[in-house]
Design a protein around this nucleic acid. Structure first.
Length: 465
RNA sequence: GGUCCCAUCGUCUAGUGGUUAGGACGUCAGCCUUUCACGCUGAAGACACGGGUUCGAGCCCCGUUGGGAUCACCA
């Protein structure tokens, strides 16, 4: 039997990091087993669903490179089918009409709460004859759930979980207005889509029991469930916007690479021995549910950042240039021309060693693409205080006739000058760096000068004197 | 509150009855070095607690404590 999984977000907001991990696990699971990864948009809550959210989720999945099979299924469009199943259950005696008003139900709950009894529907209409129905009340259809025995879920992550049927009440399948509830829709859609595995957040574990009852009432095969633990914020509390429950687009904007985010999310709650850096191909080969832990994990921005730095350093220079050029234009007001692009490409190896994310990479790259005297940051300003500018002028004269224009020759010239002036190399090099890059930190000074070329180097040095 | 789930360094985890409890991120120290990074070396740092079972328990059982999820005509 071929594996079919689905990712089923509600389009009520962006694709947050927890949803992204759920999608990743579903995707990896199907890639590993050679199955199909389907997408279902659970848009039955018309008030909270929006097309913008659908787009954001799709964009997020695309950015993470988690491709799905076929067209997304929109749950709202399946309404008639869901209602049909509810009526079939009614016919078969697995469901019944309930005429309780919302007020009555509220009163029922209040009473149960006051008496410290479990809060659940008391089955008022379960065995009552429909002839006793009050006039003018549209009934809901409730599941006629088994009252004795227990329901068992053999969960791939949580193990065998059992709940007494007496703990479960008769949930609503079809509302008074004839629309299906989520609990019904999920089951029907999972069945109709042929899902063999349902991999989702463990906030759904409790729902699984009632959903299992619907599957059984319809005589359908139960999918294999895998409820994966939720991701918490750094403080251990539920993920909130303050610490990571951002949309994946926010991580893209923070300059993270999709492969770094995937690797991080994979290791959050899943392990394979001591392995940390895991390529997507390797992940597909290794991934399975038995490696998934059962406890919630905390989101750690520092580790994501570290991983991102690793992937950045191992990314092809040309791809990084392509990623950085738009950032230079947008955030640094520097439109990159052909010459700038060539410098960027030449300097990228040195640049990428020093950045943790694309934004930092772009910021550190600006000096390569902005011609002329560089604006100085505070530390660069200090480096050029005192007699430093005089050294600059001397060095410029030396460089004017230096041959060949190579890292080694450049370094030799600067070392010689430092010796002649009887100062340490740093004393000579740092002011040069400040003038050339506008900063106190940069890639190798000699590499910078080589890439900038003689004319630009001289222009920048003389521009500061 | 009922039900369900969870519990190894600050964080992510390895560990399935016998280990000096391992790795990674982070932290600290040092090396490298023209700066900043990278890299390298080293250090500190954990089995929540209490009972069992066993020759022996981080691993098995029970309880306690702590955390989480869920209890709608939302999804």
């Amino acid at each position: 039997m071929s594996v079919v999984t689905r990712f089923a977000p509600s389009p009520t907001g962006f694709l947050h990091i927890g949803g992204a991990r759920t999608a990743l696990f579903n995707w990896l699971f199907t890639q590993h087993h050679g199955g199909k990864f389907l997408l279902r948009i659970e848009d039955t809550d018309r008030k909270r669903s929006s097309q913008e959210a659908v787009d954001a989720i799709l964009d997020g999945l695309r950015w993470l490179e988690l491709g799905w099979d076929g067209e997304p299924v929109y749950q709202f469009a399946q309404q008639a089918r869901h209602a049909e199943v509810a009526h079939a259950m009614l016919e078969a005696g697995h469901a019944y009409r309930c005429y309780c008003s919302p007020d009555e139900l509220t009163a029922m709950r209040e009473k149960a709460k006051a008496e410290k009894r479990p809060i659940r529907y008391d089955g008022t209409w379960r065995d009552r004859d429909p002839s006793q129905a009050p006039a003018g009340v549209d009934p809901v259809i409730r599941l006629k759930a088994p009252q004795d025995g227990e329901t068992v879920i053999d969960d791939l992550v949580q193990g065998r979980v059992t709940v007494q049927n007496a703990e479960l009440d008769d949930m609503v399948l079809l509302r008074a207005d004839g629309t299906p509830t989520y609990m019904l829709s999920v089951v029907v859609d999972d069945h109709d889509m042929g899902c063999t595995h349902v991999i989702r957040g463990d906030d759904h574990l409790n729902n699984a029991f009632r959903q299992a009852q619907v599957f059984m009432a319809m005589g359908w095969d139960l999918p294999v469930f895998a409820h994966i633990p939720l991701i918490h914020g750094a403080d251990g509390a539920k993920l909130s916007k303050r610490h990571g429950a951002l949309g994946v687009d926010a991580y893209r904007d923070m300059g993270f690479l999709p492969e770094a985010v995937r690797n991080y999310l994979l290791r959050l709650g899943w392990g394979h021995g001591d392995d940390e850096i895991i390529s997507t191909a390797q992940a597909i080969e290794w991934f399975d549910m038995d490696g998934v832990g059962r406890s919630a994990s905390r989101f750690d921005m520092a580790k994501l950042t570290n991983l991102n730095g690793h992937y950045l350093r191992n990314t092809d220079d040309a791809r990084l240039v392509d990623l950085v050029v738009p950032l230079l234009a947008d955030a640094h007001d520097s439109v990159v021309d052909e010459a700038g692009r060539a410098r960027l490409l030449a300097g990228m190896a040195g640049l990428k060693e020093r950045a943790k994310d694309l934004n930092e990479l772009a910021a550190n790259s600006v000096f390569y693409v902005r011609d002329g005297a560089q604006p100085l940051n505070d530390k660069a300003e200090k480096l050029l205080a005192g007699d430093a500018r005089a050294h600059l002028a001397n060095m410029a004269n030396t460089f004017a006739t230096l041959e060949p224009w190579t890292d080694d020759a450049l370094e030799a010239a600067v070392r010689e000058a430092a010796e002649a002036a009887d100062v340490k190399l740093g004393k000579m090099a740092q002011p040069l760096r400040a003038a050339l890059t506008g900063s106190n930190a940069s890639p190798s000074l000699f590499e910078v000068m080589r890439i900038l070329g003689r004319d630009e180097t001289l222009a920048r040095l003389r521009g500061q004197t």
